[in-house]
Amino acid sequence: MTRNRATAIGFIAVLLWSFLALLTVGSTPVPPLMLNAICFAIGGSIGLIWTHFSGGLAQLRKISWKVYAFGTLGVFGYHALYFSALRLAPAAEAGLIAYLWPLLIVLLSGLLPGESIRRGHILGGLLGFLGAGLIILGTGARFDTAHLPGYALAFACALTWSSYSVLSRRLGDVPTASVAVFCLASAALSFLLHLGLETTIWPQTTLGWVSVVALGLGPVGLAFYVWDIGVKKGDIQLLGTASYAAPLLSTLVLILAGIAAPSWSLMAACFLITGGAYVAARASK
């Protein structure tokens, strides 16, 4: 597989994540950890079926338990920290800090063998972060020291996903089928936490069930498999910068669905994120 093709496959994850907010709204009133458990169970099961018909489940037994522990900590840890951050801090501010992960991917990837960071990568990542900031903080929200614990968890969330993505590069020989086990283990952990912390509430409407299943098939399913291919074999700096398209596309999807309204800040964010991706692409060339 060529580097460009792997990068394009990895970007499919960004496109899928752009539907995360819309489908999450549609899944209301299912509590977050329960939703996590259901979606990861769907995503992991689909992965096992694909593995069975493509390379056989026997390949999963050859993978070290350390790899499974690493992947589960990355996938489950990110979501657990994210949900915890939103409990202790306003969603807008915590979300913006959590969205440092694409920029951190660009910066941390320079530590990988055979990779180098150019000024264009850093500039592109910063432009993308500014664009994401315009979208997420467009409501006029402000940071408050009273929410420092939540901000710290949000930063830990960003560091967890960026570290998982960059270190996955070192596991290039590990088959992507391993992600199915990451998802199923994350589903089990989410379910246990749900039992201890939440009240069980199933989807109340057909739309709710469709949203939950769609989440499990796409943003919390297929997205992790294609992302694994992208970060292992693609242009990880360009992929990190291009990830800032997720909050932009997510907002556009909400506007098309009539849930959000267009604004001048959104247009400015579009120019910043697109410009950042262009600058990073030029640096990669």
Rank of each mutant, 00 (worst) to 15 (best):
N4P: 08
N4S: 13
A6L: 08
I12T: 06
I12G: 09
L15H: 00
N36M: 14
A37G: 10
F40R: 01
L48E: 05
W50M: 14
G55I: 10
Q59H: 10
W65D: 04
K66S: 15
K66V: 14
Y68H: 15
F70D: 06
T72P: 06
T72F: 13
F76N: 05
H79K: 13
R87E: 06
A89E: 06
A91S: 11
A91G: 07
A98V: 10
W101T: 07
I105V: 08
V106H: 05
G110K: 10
G114F: 09
S116W: 12
R119E: 11
R119V: 14
G133T: 00
L137K: 06
G138Y: 08
T139N: 15
T139K: 15
A146K: 01
Y151A: 07
L153H: 00
L159K: 07
W161D: 02
V166M: 13
D173Q: 14
D173I: 11
T176K: 10
A177R: 07
S178N: 09
V181C: 09
F182M: 04
L192Y: 13
I201F: 08
W202F: 15
W202P: 10
L207F: 12
L215I: 03
A223S: 15
Y225V: 05
V226C: 12
W227P: 00
W227S: 04
D228R: 06
K232N: 11
K233G: 04
D235F: 01
G240P: 03
T241N: 13
A242K: 02
T251S: 12
I255Q: 11
L266N: 04
C270A: 15
I273L: 10
G276Y: 07
A281N: 13
A283F: 01
S284Q: 08
S284T: 03
